[in-house]
């Protein structure tokens, strides 16, 4: 019989609603407890929980992944790392070292957490674009054919191409201007280097 912890990992990889619900009920309370101790509210816990699950989703999908700790320690360790980073950024309270007494987030996992944070930054900047740009880019990112987008929006293909270029340019500018982007890419580079010292 498969270990229950591995069942949870598989459920995350397969986006299994029933088991994800179970994961919420079982592991959100201890995560919330940890956040409470560090100045977090229930809404914060829900956000951090979601991000931690997404990190597991990517981390566990990597070749050679092995669960080296109980699922609860693993998930809450990731959540703790994410929350402490948020606290540090917002300087809401003084926090202790990430690894002082928490789950040991290794370089590989750290890399994944930063990657997820970077993607969150992309989504955040995307919401700052105008409605038209968001609509158009979303359809591009969803790989809809250009002529269908043009047809639906009542534009010519050329106009859609130009508008796409402008909107994408604006989005990239918003991302690159944010200091977090530089910080995250440098963290990602450094975590990647630590995880693969031979440049693999």
């Amino acid at each position: 019989m498969e270990n229950k912890d591995l069942t949870y990992i598989r459920a995350i990889l397969n986006n299994d609603s029933t088991l994800l619900d179970e994961i919420y009920r079982r592991f959100l309370p201890p995560l919330f407890g940890m956040l409470r101790r560090n100045g977090g509210r229930f809404e914060d816990a829900k956000d951090v929980f979601q991000e931690a699950i997404v990190v597991v989703f990517h981390h566990a999908a990597r070749p050679g992944f092995q669960l080296t700790a109980p699922f609860q320690s693993y998930l809450i360790g990731i959540g703790r790392f994410i929350w402490l980073r948020q606290l540090k950024k917002n300087a809401r309270i003084e926090v202790t070292s990430d690894r002082e007494d928490g789950f040991d987030v290794d370089a590989d996992l750290e890399h994944q957490i930063f990657e997820s944070e970077k993607q969150r930054l992309f989504r955040e900047k995307f919401t700052l674009l105008g409605k038209d740009c968001q609509q158009l880019l979303q359809r591009f990112f969803d790989r809809e054919p250009l002529n269908r987008i043009a047809n639906d929006m009542g534009y010519t293909d050329d106009y859609v191409k130009k508008k796409n270029k402008v909107c994408k340019g604006k989005l990239m500018e918003l991302i690159q201007k944010d200091t977090r982007y530089g910080e995250l890419t440098s963290h990602i580079y450094s975590a990647k280097t630590q995880a693969a010292p031979n440049g693999e």
Partner: peptide, 9 residues
């Protein structure tokens, strides 16, 4: 990266 992060599917 941007495209992957924002692709709804």
């Amino acid at each position: 990266d941007i495209s992957a992060a924002l692709n709804a599917s």
